[in-house]
Design a protein around this nucleic acid. Structure first.
Lengths: 353, 353
DNA sequence: TTGTAAGCGTTATCAC
DNA sequence: GTGATAACGCTTACAA
């Protein structure tokens, strides 16, 4: 029997207002079935005591925590932060609370995070990617709540729902675009494939890219995978340096992330290599930096915030809400697509050369 | 009386293992006071049923939620994401869970977020800045849990603890640095001061900067505050364009964030203005991008991740932990300081001119 | 080493 | 409109 709480409880409020706890509970829940005077008296008591509802107890009793578990690879990358932002905004007025965790791109972290989050009894779980450990898959399937996999779709069946795009297809599109510009000696930059740490989506993009190069009869020798997951500025610059030092003449380079592409761009700048004059650089993700740098970065555009927003709308329809009718049953897969954003870092291959 | 849960409870595990729920609870808590065989039997039952502990109930009963509430202005900015990361890492093995919320730099959002988070009964609350609404201050003081204000310190007394640095002093240091390089016609870039949306820390930096300019007898007319909070790439570029268009000759510019400084740098590049040849640019924050761009950005360095780490260590000492001795009582204020990082975007004023 | 009893602060349910 | 009662699934405190 723990020592009595320092904070006022609903009982304290009820006592002060001269009603039963149940009536206070009704006021908290915004029920209209309370007499206006009673409500005022209760609100006065709440203010007087500085009462703050205990949602832990409320959650246990009502069996609704209002938590949405969200698991992403990293927070440090604006992409997933944007998605979390979109999700938060979509959920803003609904009273749901995001429970955010990140995996550092490690499957083992993801697995333990899923368990930890499930212990908090979220009403839904949102996580990046379609690849999980076996134990993770079992937990997700047995969780009894909506599961939404994001940032990828099209290749495999989702556990529950999926909101994303085809990473493989986006990689293929990148390759086709560079080929269409007349480039032939094409390179690509991706991260090292680790044991536990994986950027599955970046790898899928590289896979699609490689496929198209091969189909076009072009060499895939200029595809480098080096640097820690996730590849950032410095990793992109280092990979570019490696390409430049060892791969011979080069027409164009695709990086699996704008961060790496920007690093590559800066490496070119440092070496006095004209972009796009003598080398085209194509990024991925449409990060804000690509729009601002000089030259502006051509990229494959993904609307990260929109992914979050759509997940929020999906959840609002899936979860029992006070809004009543939630429309038709949602489809399992939402493909938000991608688009090629042509800016200043890509150009047709010069006629001479 | 809600419908019986679909998930197995501790009772189910206990029944299957032929023990009382209390013994299962002990196993979950990692108590050594359980016979090895009993433990094995219970773990087998847990695995067989796919039992996942209900921390909602555990929290209510034990009065320990394991939540640390964390409120930052934005997640989209790598700075606060880094701090959250540092905090998470410091807390990783302790079993505490971050409850992250962001205010969009709005005091009203902060206030409602504090209330929402307090309802979840966190064991500590961490939030950016020392400025809060009156109601927020009241809630924080009455919360009965450790309060840690971060990213600023030195000017006011913290509610509980503070981990940060003096933003005013950092602005002063920025001005002194540019003056010491010989610059006289000095500008600065900050965001618009909104009604509800405030970047108090950025404003404080600008205040310190302005003070020193004034003390040195230099004009403060080149200090522009425009663009939405928080100032990012595009805002910095626009402010730089404005300065260049209207402020006449300019020796150097300080931006209250590296993001804005990078935008300013790119604007110069677009206009063919040599940096640092004819204009020095100084940023703030030591974001990764400043280290990678060309020219590399001189900046005021703050170790964002370290702030989070220190908060985590502070909390570990403050909170009742299984570790027993937590060392001496922590001091109220931890100043992590800042340092001037000289890179390629600043240079002494050319002798001629 | 294990079990019993009571209760954490709220809400569902049903009676008044 | 309002209240009494019984949970929600777990842990504290103490007994055995």
């Amino acid at each position: 029997m723990p020592k009595r709480s320092l904070r006022p409880t609903m009982r304290d409020v009820a006592r002060l207002a001269g009603v039963s706890p149940m009536t206070v509970s009704r006021v908290q829940a915004g029920s209209a079935l309370v007499a206006p005077e009673t409500r005022d008296r209760i609100n006065a008591a709440i203010a007087a005591l500085g009462y703050v509802e205990d949602k832990v107890a409320a959650s246990l009793s009502s069996r609704r925590t209002g938590f949405i578990a969200t698991i992403v690879p990293t927070l440090t990358n604006s992409t997933f932060a944007d998605t979390a932002h979109g999700l938060t905004e979509a959920l803003r007025r609904s009273g749901y609370q995001l429970l955010i965790g990140y995996t550092r791109y490690r499957m083992s972290d993801e697995e333990s995070l899923i368990r930890t989050m499930l212990e908090r009894r979220p009403e839904a779980i949102v996580l990046a990617g379609m690849s999980h450990t076996e134990a993770a898959g079992t937990m997700l399937r047995g969780a009894g709540i909506p599961v939404v996999e994001i940032w990828d779709c099209g290749e495999a069946d989702p556990i529950g729902y999926a909101v994303g795009f085809s990473n493989i297809e986006s990689g293929r599109a990148a390759a086709r675009h560079l080929i269409a510009l007349g480039h032939r000696r094409i390179g690509a930059i991706g991260p090292t494939i680790g044991d536990d740490a994986h950027d599955f989506r970046g790898e899928a993009r590289l896979t699609g890219f490689t496929e198209v190069l091969r189909e076009a009869g072009l060499s895939t020798d200029r595809i480098v995978q080096r640097g820690d997951v996730p590849l950032s500025f410095a990793g992109g610059a280092a990979a570019m340096a490696h390409l430049l030092d060892t791969a011979g003449p080069l027409d164009a380079v695709f990086a699996i992330s704008d961060l790496a592409a920007f690093g590559a761009l800066m490496e070119c700048q440092r070496r006095g290599i004209a972009v796009p004059g003598s080398l085209s650089v194509l990024g991925f993700g449409d990060f804000e930096i690509g729009d601002q740098c000089v030259p502006a970065l051509s990229t494959i555009g993904i609307d990260a915030e929109d992914i979050g927003r759509r997940v929020g709308e999906l959840l609002l329809r899936l979860l029992p809400g006070d809004a009543g009718d939630h429309g038709p049953t949602p489809t399992a897969v939402t493909d938000v697509g991608f688009k090629i954003v042509e800016r200043g870092s890509t150009a047709p291959r010069p006629v001479s050369t």
